[in-house]
Simulated assay, not measured.
Amino acid sequence: MEAGRQGRYVTCNGAGEPYRAFVPPPLPPQPPLAFGGELIGLLEEANRLLGRLDGLATALPDPQLLLYQYVRKEAVLSSQIEGTQSSLSDLLIHEMEEVPGVPEDDVEEVSCYVRALNHGLERLNSLPLSLRLLREIHAVLLSSGRGATKQPGEFRRSQNWLGGTRPGNAEFVPPPPEQLMDCLGPFETFLHDPHTPPLIKAALAHVQFETIHPFLDGNGRLGRLLIALLLVEAKVLQYPLLYLSLHFKANRPEYYDRLGRVRTHGDWEGWLAFFLRGVIHTAREAAETAQKILALFDADRARIAQLGRLSGSALRLHEHLRLRVVSSAGVAAEKTGVNRSSTVTALNKLIELGIVRELTGYRRNRLFAYDAYLVLLSRDTEPLPP
């Protein structure tokens, strides 16, 4: 363990037995980060690809075309790391409130993540990233579902732990509650540090938040959400199009190992290399997916334009499905202003063209998906094995 980075263990008592809780040192790490050639190269490449991704979004006539779906993809991936079995399709169907029979527990957690991120983005317009804002976002994140009884919006007043059945046999025990604010005060100060580059700040803050574990539940999801909020606040990204949880999900054992090695060995450099490689991979993947999506839109629009008298209503329907990849006839008619009968006719024509697929097999309460678009968005969002 590198001297000066190790933090300290404090001995506590709970349920009649002693246990050791870990109290991390404040950020930034001391001794300072060793930025060798590899880390500098990774940081430069990560910043370049983030700039490319942000530029692509800025050039769009309507960035909401991708933002709506990408935020939901990140929500699904982040929640899957915590063990939910909800897919992107489940979430999009869940959001169609008139449709019965959608599994509730897992998909409600993902839906709360979407609302929490949107709340945080909106509040950044008037409030800096702070402990107050994190409590607000946490309250939204746990507003319903399984975490609703775990003190939403409140820092914990009792000991939590990771792994094991109690603190005495846990894999990791965060700071005891009476020392929580001693950790969170310097953490908030670091969030406002003007000298740490934004990507490095996001990487360091994520680990520190996970180590402090200030809430009874939802720390993992909020810690990953914190990355997006920091990058948007620093104007590295205008829109949170980086679904970095894809990297953490695909490399889940290494993700947890890297977090652990920071605590046990002070290995911030190893974590940063892992984090920056994830930014590089995910930013590249997000930009390539965006380009494929835009090419798909152009190709399908050209095909629809050949439909003759049906082309007008079908093009308006296509416009709607670009923003809402899963929809119903009723919602589509309401959003496009096309009457329901013409909407159904247009949907059937798009099904014939292979652009739209009916999802339910029902005669009523049917749902329709922009099929190739949903396939592109759903890449790598299959639930992890339980």
Rank of each mutant, 00 (worst) to 15 (best):
T196V: 15
G218E: 12
V232T: 10
A202R: 02
A205M: 10
E233L: 06
V279G: 07
L222S: 00
A250G: 02
A250D: 13
K249T: 01
G266I: 05
F209Q: 08
W268C: 02
H195Y: 13
K201L: 13
H247V: 05
R252E: 10
L231F: 10
T189F: 00
D257Q: 15
G278T: 09
R277E: 14
R284S: 15
P197V: 10
L241C: 01
T264R: 15
L237D: 11
P194T: 12
P194Q: 11
N251L: 14
H213K: 08
G278A: 13
F209L: 14
L242I: 06
H213R: 08
G223E: 09
G223D: 09
P253M: 11
R277H: 15
L272S: 03
L229Y: 04
G218K: 11
I200D: 00
K201I: 03
E285Q: 14
L241D: 01
V236K: 01
Y243G: 01
L241T: 11
F248L: 11
V236A: 04
A286N: 00
R221M: 12
P198I: 07
K201C: 02
T211S: 11
D193G: 12
V232A: 05
A205E: 07
P194H: 11
L244G: 06
L199I: 13
Q208N: 07
G260I: 02
L276Y: 08
G260F: 12
H206Q: 14
H265Q: 14
G223H: 13
D217M: 04
T189P: 00
F215D: 04
H281A: 15
D267M: 09
A283W: 02
T264W: 10
L204I: 00
R277S: 14
A234R: 15
W271G: 01
Y239R: 15
H247K: 06
D193M: 09
Y239M: 08
K249N: 02
T196K: 05
N251P: 05
P198K: 04
A202F: 04
F209K: 07
E210D: 02
L216Y: 05
L199N: 04
E285N: 07
G218D: 11
N219V: 06
R224Y: 04
D267I: 10
G270S: 10
H206N: 13
A286I: 00
E269H: 09
A234D: 15
T264A: 14
V279C: 05
N251F: 10
A203T: 03
E269N: 08
H195C: 08
L222H: 03
R261M: 13
E210C: 06
F248S: 01
D193R: 10
I280Q: 13
I280G: 09
S245I: 02
P197L: 09
L242M: 08
R284F: 12
L225W: 04
L191H: 09
R224N: 02
W268T: 02
L244Y: 06
F215N: 04
P253W: 08
V232D: 06
E233Y: 03
L204F: 00
Y239L: 13
K201Q: 15
L204K: 00
Y256I: 05
F248D: 04
L241I: 01
P240H: 07
A273G: 12
T282P: 02
G260D: 13
D257P: 00
Y256D: 06
P253C: 10
D257F: 11
K235P: 00
G278I: 09
L242C: 09
I227W: 09
A250H: 09
Q208E: 11
L204R: 00
G218V: 12
